[in-house]
Amino acid sequence: MSKEVLDQWIARSFEQDRRATAKLISWVEDDIERAHIMRSVLKKTGQKMVVGITGPPGAGKSSLVEALTKLYRARDERVGIVAVDPSSPYTGGAILGDRIRMQAHGTDRDVFIRSMGTRGHLGGVTRSTSDVLRILEGGGYGRLLLETVGVGQSELEIMQMADTVVVVLNPGTGDGIQAIKAGIMEVADVFVVNKADLPGADRMKNDIEMMLNLNGDTRPWRPPVVLTSVITETGVESLYEKIEAHQCYMLESGQRDERRKERLRQEVWRHWEDKMRALYEIVWEEAREERVILHQDDPYQLAQMLWEERFKGG
């Protein structure tokens, strides 16, 4: 594909052509002209805030995304959604099933839902997630929602990609100790206890509030704990308000820019890591062909040897 043709696709995406937006996402995900596309897109974007929704599998992330989308649509805002599901470590294949819970907006052209497989990336998102969100922004979607894979306790990369992190939990999934553990519980800007129609919701809220009390009064933003139930349609309006409040706080306190500076650093490092990985795949293959590794079973020594060969000219 020539640069001229590519630039036409980019221009069409900026004119809100959904097909073009979808194509740009695929190319960036497949690493085809990624840098060229993103340089154009990043020039035009970066103003809109990203709301990240994370939590364990089955917590109700997709359903909450749909419920929030309904509220944004009622206010006539266009919504871009990225939903991540895991790829198989064996075949690279994936079943991406988040759309099932988002049927209500299936033919609404002002809602763009894109499903992504993790493709080997750990951390709950994919290596192109933040770029894809910016492509959606360029395509005219002003509300950006990111739903991670179902996470455990430590997939925290969402904190680099979202301006507001919403952690979704369910009643009956842990005691007070779970709430004071490190990891996912620390990165929340807003807590949601979803499926609050089930027993134990208040107890869960109390455990989280107690954990937050231990933080003391030194932090300027105390994450609110919202009870929601998508089935009885309660609490979603309140979640919407808490997200708005957090976004105001991020802007006014300058925290948004702080977080974005950190994100820039992380992204540059990610690109370096990709480059180094590609380089070292070649080094490894060469070492294998030259049978260097056959005579080695000490990984420390082998790593040091190959490293020195590369950087000190052997």
Binding site: S87, S88, T91, G93, L96, G97, R99, I100, Q103
Partner: peptide, 8 residues
């Protein structure tokens, strides 16, 4: 090895 979007 394919990515399958299951729409329900």
């Amino acid at each position: 090895g394919m990515e399958v979007i299951y729409s329900g």
